[in-house]
Design a protein around this nucleic acid. Structure first.
Length: 461
RNA sequence: GACCCCAUCGUCCAGUGGUCAGGACACCAGGUUUUCAUCCUGGAAACACGGGUUCGACUCCCGUUGGGGUCGCCA
């Protein structure tokens, strides 16, 4: 008997909890205005919203605030959507285009008017006609910011503001709040630059009879001078990072760590781990300076962890973009000897050009430095003759070089560097013998012949 | 100017009254290597300043200084 009551109570209780859960379920949104490029500060806000939603098992929504018809072109929206997709910021409901919600915004304004929360006015007698002004309450407004703590504004600092322009279009504040209500937003996670707006927004929520969401204001991403990071400070838009060959996962990981950390020192975090660890409580209160060096380092970590096929594709793409289309098998061998030397896909061609064409740049200073040494050209000439019949593999090539060097009474390094410059044009790169193996005998000998001829022409011997 | 926010190595973060103030990037040195990159080892490097509170402050409070944000019929 008692057990039955208890189990029934448990069932009811579970139902109540489930219902409460449904009502309270987290709903956040990213609400950018499409401008044709997506700033890292904005996308970082999107990332935090996304992580929060995923961590809480809530929903992440997208609202495109395209009411500024000047900038909000279809292309700009497309850029935004592409950036989201590239970073894997998937949203749980179809995007809401704010420009389609004008009627709702104006209806809300009418309601505020009807209920005395707003009034019509020809502000300052500008002759522009009547606009609708929201009447701020005569009491102070206070709220608990999830990252900044308690924030308060006395009534004396709160001023009435326009919610519908004299041309009949709704202003940002009105549209933003009306849409947040319609979308059932429970948490507003946005940039620091919105804190002042929050007091107005809270007043609007109340006047509209809607529950006020929780707020979390993120510190800004700044430049070396502590000012908001802009395109003048380097890559600032998502598209630029993508073009430079930065991996989406690396950028995501790096941005997640700008203003937040799990607290245990871990930095290389998978998406899964980020979701699991993310909490607003651990969000930093002070601004963070963007550090490209660290992003580059992180990108290198992600690159080497990439599945081989994806790595190959990434490098191939850059080569293709430069008009090169090497055989995948051959490219694979090149990458094998290049090891961790390429840190960005976008630098592939630049660093491996000599593997694919005879038209590669030569570091003139290094070339002269290596070839002008007396006896070097002659020794290389001998080496070239020996290599005609040496099995073209690392060990024998190395043995031969050392023999020739010894016979010429020179350290092997002298020949190694001279040969390196001759066959690759650059003083840096993979181990010489591995490089020669990939290049093959024919190309190697031809390049040595050219170098020898050049040395002769320049009077080196 | 008014209102608000912020303040630990060069940078990003740990640190929530008692620590030799820790990690990462960058930097420097050494090792590995023919070079470069990687990798390994080591090093230099910070609590803005001044008052309190306390037996004891990087940690709490106040002020100063410095930086930033907001003050639109932009979003």
């Amino acid at each position: 008997m008692y057990g039955a009551i208890q189990s029934r109570w448990r069932a009811v209780n579970a139902k109540v909890r489930a219902r409460a859960q449904q009502i309270m379920s987290v709903r956040v949104r990213f609400a950018p205005s499409p401008t044709g490029h997506v700033h890292i500060g904005n996308i970082r806000a999107a990332i935090f919203n996304w992580l929060f939603a995923r961590h809480e098992g809530g929903r992440f929504l997208l609202r495109i605030e395209d009411t500024d018809r000047e900038r909000s072109t279809p292309e700009a929206c497309q850029t935004l959507l592409e950036a989201m997709a590239w970073l894997g910021l998937d949203y749980d409901e179809p995007p809401v285009y704010q420009s389609t919600r004008r009627e709702a915004h104006l209806a809300a304004a009418e309601e505020l008017l009807a209920r005395g929360y707003a009034y019509r006015e020809d502000k300052g007698g500008t002759g522009r006609g009547e606009c609708i002004v929201f009447r701020m309450p005569s009491t102070s407004i206070e709220f608990d910011d999830l990252v900044k703590g308690s924030l308060k504004k006395p009534a004396s600092d709160l001023h009435d503001f326009v919610i519908v322009r004299s041309d009949g279009t709704p202003v940002f504040h009105l549209a933003n709040v009306v849409d947040d209500i319609a979308m059932g937003i429970t948490h507003v996670i946005r940039g620091d630059d919105h804190v002042e707006n929050t007091f107005r927004h809270i007043a609007l929520f109340r006047a509209l009879g809607a529950p006020v969401p929780k707020y979390a204001h993120l510190p800004m991403i700044v430049n070396r001078q502590g000012r908001p990071y802009s395109k003048r400070d380097g890559a600032a838009y998502v598209g630029e990072f993508r073009e430079r060959g930065i991996l989406a996962d690396a950028l995501f990981n790096y941005l997640a760590l700008l203003g937040w950390s799990p607290g245990d020192g871990r930095e290389l975090l998978s998406r899964r781990e980020l979701i699991e660890l993310f909490t607003l409580e651990r969000v930093q209160t002070s601004p963070a300076q963007f550090d490209m060096d660290k992003l580059l380092w992180m990108n290198a970590q992600y690159m080497r962890a990439l599945p081989p096929a994806e790595r190959l594709a990434g490098h191939m793409k850059d080569l293709n973009a430069h008009g090169l289309a090497p055989d995948p098998e051959y490219l694979l061998r090149v990458l094998e000897v290049m090891q961790d030397r390429i840190k960005l896909f976008s630098q592939t061609t630049e660093q491996t050009i000599y593997f694919f064409t005879e038209d590669y740049p030569v570091d003139e200073d290094a070339w002269a430095r290596r070839w002008r040494r007396p006896g070097v050209p002659a020794a290389v000439a001998q080496l070239r003759e020996r290599w005609m019949s040496t099995p073209f593999q690392g060990a024998p090539l190395e043995a031969t070089l050392k023999e020739v060097a010894a016979a010429a009474g020179r350290p092997p390094a002298d020949l190694i560097h001279a040969v390196r410059l001759a066959v690759s044009g650059t003083p840096t790169g993979p181990g010489l013998y591995a490089m020669l193996e990939v290049l093959g005998r024919e190309r190697t000998l031809a390049r040595l012949d050219r170098a020898l001829a050049r040395a002769r022409a320049e009077g080196y011997e």
